[in-house]
Amino acid sequence: MITRYAAATGALVADTFRESLSRKIFWGFFGCSTVLMLLFLLVLNIDIVKGGVAAIKIFGQDFNGGQGVEIGQVVNAVLGGVSVFLFTAGLFFSVFASAGLIPTVFEPGRIELLLSKPVSRSHLLLGNFVGTLAVIGCNLVLSNLWSLGGLGPENRHLAGGFFGGGLVGRLRVWCVADGRAACGRDFPQRRPGDDGDVLCDAAERDVFAAREPCSLFQFAMAAGSGDGALLRLPEVSWYR
């Protein structure tokens, strides 16, 4: 009985996966969010000398007004703006990409056939809900794997910290990554092997990993959560 129930739930989950992957809107938002993240990654470039901003480039053009500004202020300002934008866009993307997954199951002509099987309405709803969660969960696992790859072989000991930190930890890393993406790819003052360096590398990978709508959503949710730590540079000790 339990096996049958699990098999039916598994079939519903697999079907939700197939349906989400077959949707053009899903891939459309995937493309949009990728472009968006690349934009944040590449649009702004900040050169830092001795803790101060030496030069800021936007779309490759010099922005001289930023010279001598404290790096923390720049990061906070940029990150704040980006976070608000991503929260809105992420929410929009995720809602539109996954909104139709459950209602389509209850369309006339489809629900009658599903209900003719030995499954109840609540079971159908549960199966599809779990399926939608599984799609999101896969994104999370994928992004974890990407960030682990980004740690490099010499820093494997941090892996436990990443997984142990759980979702909140990942969200923090994404937000830090966004700070780095927004500030530019290079922090000249970092030292090789520095934990901050490792975190920045991992975070940079996370920017790519966060391309899919649901990852973007999680990222945006964290960015908009009001946690003050999100607006600071890496809290490296948190991951030890």
């Binding site: 079907d15 197939r18 349906e19 992957l21 077959s22 389509t104 369309e107 006339p108 002509g109 489809r110 009658e112 056939l113 003719s116």
Partner: peptide
């Protein structure tokens, strides 16, 4: 069913 709608994916 009469007017079935099988998932096309």
């Amino acid at each position: 069913p009469e007017n079935h709608r099988f998932p096309t994916y």
